[in-house]
Each structure stands twice: as C-alpha cells, then as structure tokens.
Design a protein around this nucleic acid. Structure first.
Length: 504
RNA sequence: GCCGCGUUGGUCAAGGGGUUAAGACGCCUCCCUUUCACGGAGGAAUCACGGGUUCGAAUCCCGUACGUGGUACCA
C-alpha cells in the first residue's frame, strides 16, 4: 500500500457533532494503524456560513478526544495552506482545464431563470428537476452561445458559474470499502456547479483537487455524500486519472434515538443529552450547546462509545482503549446501516471507564467539579474519597452528589426515612457518642463499638444503621456508613450525630 | 416523484446455507448489602413481508414494504 494519508474536512459552521467526531475517529484509527498521516483540512468555501471561532473549536474538540491531526492549518504541513479559502487560486486552473477539454462549461443562468426551468419541468411532469443533459441545451450557457458571445459576456462581467458536463447513459461505479460496488447511471447525475459566481469552488471541485494535491490515499466520509460520488469520480477521471483516486468509504449515519432522521443538535436539546463533543457557543446567536465533556464524559468513554456505534471487532469485547482500537479497527467491519444513538448506553460506557480509571487520572477532573460547585477540598482527602465512590458515579459530575458529604456536613436530611424512632434509639446514639470519644478511630473499631452497643441495648443494628447514615450523609446513598465515619473523623462524626439528634 | 443506500429483540449488535439465533444497553426477578450503587444468578423480547433457488434459508436471488440520504451558486 502506498503512503496512507487520510483527511477530515469539516466546514467551519459551528459545533462538532457525534457523526463528525466518529468520522474523524475512523480516519484517525486507519491512519495510525497504517503508520500514515491524518490531515485536517478546513472547508470554508461557503463564506456565508462561516462562523468565527469554529475552526479553533474543532481543534479543541479533537485535542480533547485525543485525535490530534498531523497536518492542519495550525500544525502546518507539506501541503499548506489547509484552508480552502486560502487555496482559492488553485481551483480555477483545474476548472478552466475542464472547460478547455470539453468536460465543463460556463453557465450564465440567473437564479430566476433556474427557478423558471424547475417550474417548467415540474409542470411538464418530469421526474427530474435537475440541470442536466436533458435541459442544458435550452439554457444560457457556453454550449449554446458562440465562443464570441461567451467571451464577451465574461469580459462584460456577467456573473457565471462553471458546471460539469455529464454525458448521459454511462455506467459510473465505485468500489466502496464498506459497501462494495456501487453503480450509478450518469443520466441521473446533474451538471453540478464546480465554480460559483463568487469565484469559490464548490465542495465537489475542491475535494477532488485537494485530495489530489494533498495526496490523499483514503477518503472516508458520511453516507450523505454517496449520491454525489459520481460527480467526484468523473472529476477524477477527467482531471487526474482514476488510478490516482483515493479509496472511498462512506460511513453510516448516526440516527435520532427516537423518531426519524439524522441526529441533530435539536434532538439533544429536546431529549436532554449532548450531541457536540464540547460546549459550543454560537457567536451569532449567543446560544450555547452543551458538550459531552461538560456533561461529565471521559474522552476515552466518548471515543469508545463512538467507535462501537457502527463497528465491532466480532468478539464480545465492548471496552476498547484508543490503542486497542488502533490495533483492532478494520474499515470493512464497519456497518452499512445507520445506527440510532442511545444516550443510556453512552452513559454506561462512561461508567465503565470511570470504574477502570485511576485516582490520579480522575482527580483533576473531579476536583474541577467540586470547584465548579464552590467547594475547595483537601486534595489528599479527595484522593482517598475517589476510589470509594467511583463505582456509583456514571458521569464525572456525579462525584459531587456522591461525595460532597465527605467534605461538608449535609444541610438537608431525609428525616422521613427514619422510621420507628423512639427514646430507646435516641439513648443508643447518646451513649454511642460517648463510647466513640474513647476509641481508636478506624473503621473496624467504629463498627464493633456500634454493634456491641446495639446488642447491649437490645436493638437490631440494622434498625440503627439507616438513622446513622441519614445523620452522616443526609440521605439514603453513599458507601458503607462506618467507612464514611472513619474518613470524616471522630469530631465530625460526633458533631453530625448530635446535630441530627437535636432535630428528632 | 426520481436516484442511491440500508433492514437480526425497544436500542447497539454477532452470525454470510444446517446454531437451543451470541453478547451488551435498557427493563423485570432473585442473591449480596438492613442505604444507594458495584458484583453475581436468572427472565421477557428478534431474523420486515412475499416469492423463488436448495434436502435445508436469518444467511443466496428477485420483488414488495418500510426506513434513510441526496435531488442548492450548503457542505
């Protein structure tokens, strides 16, 4: 295999959603697996949709995910520039060559004229409303105009686009790494615009030219591009030769959890889960969309979940590290069908990753969560608390709810859970406090003390544990009570018991 | 409408002519724990439909249905 070079080419229009990250991931895994290069190219040929800051945002997301590109507009590389807006001049040359070779032509039709054409086609009951071989000879373009007229119009500054001239009745096929042979009848392919009136190329021309110039060997992209693949193939054939064309793979779509269609930002808003990798603040609308990172996801879990949404290695393994993915990923095991996104499963992956992550790894993240909740905690104490509570945390943000009582006394108590409270039990806790003062502070001794005293008073320890828990943590959750007591210390334990005793 | 792609439990999916049709999430029951989890043991639940081919089809072929994407001077 020649040098593997893959690329991800996002449009900087804001946000980086699940499907985008998965596309990057598969590109990245493939590149790493083949000791190749992962290129990030920015597709900003649609100036009207360009959003300030979106490019940097994409870099930040990729970095968080551990998918740092080898070449990009900020990392540099041998094929600079990596922004299409800065490569504008390169495309014109190829478009002109296409015209010269008779594979493309100038079209002067105005938007109104195009609209009129579609109306007319609709009225005639035509199956297709496309600008294609069947209508092009009735339109205002260089195929109908004389050479003199054409050059005159161009010289006079009449706006024009360059369209590809697709010859009808040809079989166009491509070999897709995931789907196998895919065939198209060129009669159903329209004369796509290659160069827009503003001098910018469309995606179709730009991908082909850039992929050639950047020596891209494998092109993986979303399935939504499959219908325009014949145009790209024709362009490769006319411009550079099919033998130079990268190998294609069209990735399945990620679908809405319920209902129909492609997953969109709106679904996340409606159903209460993120669809972007990281928080995205749209500078135009000022609106912020929540990200997986801020929701409390570990990048490892996010990547793991995405990798397995549409791919698996054929075994029962579910948890994969990036290294394992690089070793085991194979493009031909990627599914053909789209997959519904399931947030519950995504959370399960996160939970699994939290369970296997070290305290050292979790510490800074958890510390940030405490800080965000306005709690400055003792680092050593937090380090000892993390392993104790991580089994019950699904999101990093859960560490606050599951562990804040180690650092501060609860302020609300679920007193209703303490049933059958009586003087007998109160007496127990009163003398328990006294005995506690005298003992050595460790979990086993606290527990023994508690149980012996309970036996002495003739009360079942079980009936006393729940009240004790409410006293220490405020509610019916958390690790073993005696463990908690041993961690928060003697004074704090006694004070919390006394505090609640006064309320009962 | 036309073109492309797809279709195994509610979801993610293994399996590609002979299987009791894996496994995971979620759900339910039980055990552990007199908290909540974790962990453990079980359970309900699936090959879209119709025709072929074949001794035999979830698996191959053809239709149909359904889903999904495209059908822009957006990517």
């Amino acid at each position: 295999m020649k040098n593997v070079r893959v690329r991800f080419a996002p449009s900087p229009t804001g946000g980086l959603h699940l499907g985008g990250v998965r596309t990057v991931l598969y590109n990245y895994l493939f590149a790493r697996q083949h000791k190749g290069t992962f290129v990030l190219r920015i597709e900003d040929t649609d100036q009207s949709r360009y959003v300030e800051g979106a490019e940097q945002y994409i870099f930040d997301c990729l970095q968080w995910c551990g998918l740092t590109p080898d070449e990009s507009s900020i990392h540099g590389g041998p094929f600079t520039p990596y922004r299409q807006s800065e490569r504008k001049d390169m495309y014109k040359k190829y478009a002109d060559q296409l015209v010269k070779d008779g594979h493309a032509y100038y079209a002067f039709d105005t938007p109104e004229e195009l609209e009129a054409m579609r109306e007319k086609l609709k009225a005639s009951g035509s199956n297709s409303l496309q600008y294609d071989h069947s209508v092009r000879m009735k339109m205002k373009n260089s195929l109908n105009l004389s050479e003199v007229e054409t050059t005159q119009m161009i010289d006079n500054g009449v706006p024009y686009v360059i369209r590809i001239k697709v010859e009808p009745s040809q079989n166009i096929h491509l070999h897709d790494l995931i789907r196998g042979e895919v065939h198209f009848d060129s009669s159903t392919v329209d004369d796509k615009v290659l160069m827009k009136a503003d001098g910018m190329p469309t995606y179709h021309l730009a991908v082909v030219v850039d992929d050639f110039l950047m020596e891209i060997s494998h092109a993986f992209r979303g399935e939504e591009w499959l219908p325009s693949a014949p145009v790209h193939i024709l362009l490769w054939k006319y411009l550079f030769g099919l033998d130079k064309m990268p190998q294609w793979a069209h990735l399945p779509l990620i679908l809405k959890p319920d209902g129909h269609g492609k997953l969109s930002k709106r679904d996340g808003d409606a159903l209460g889960f993120p669809v972007f990798a990281m928080n995205w603040k749209d500078p135009k609308s000022g609106e912020t969309t929540k990200g997986f990172k801020e929701t409390g996801f570990l990048p490892e879990a996010f990547i793991n979940m995405l990798a397995v949404l549409g791919w698996n290695d054929g075994t029962e393994q579910e948890i994969f590290s990036m290294e394992e993915l690089i070793g085991k990923f194979s493009i031909d095991r990627v599914h053909k069908g789209g997959a519904r996104f399931d947030f519950e499963k995504a959370k399960w992956y996160n939970h699994e990753w939290i369970k296997i992550s070290s305290t050292e790894k979790l510490f800074p993240l958890v510390n940030d969560v405490y800080l965000a909740n306005g709690l400055l905690v003792d680092e050593q104490l937090l380090r000892s608390v993390i392993p104790v509570i991580k089994d019950r945390c699904t999101l990093i943000t859960d560490f606050y709810q599951q562990g804040n009582f180690f650092f501060q006394s609860p302020t609300v108590w679920d007193l209703s859970s303490i049933s059958k409270w009586d003087d007998n039990k109160k007496a127990f806790f009163l003398s328990f406090i006294d005995t506690l003062r005298a003992i050595d502070w460790n979990m086993a001794d606290i527990e023994n003390c508690f149980k012996n005293l309970a036996a002495e008073k003739g009360i079942k320890p079980g009936e006393l544990q729940l009240p004790m828990r409410i006293m220490l943590v405020g509610g019916k959750f958390g690790p073993a009570v005696f463990l908690i007591a041993s961690i928060i210390g003697k004074e704090e334990t006694i004070s919390r018991i006394q505090n609640v005793l006064n309320k009962l």
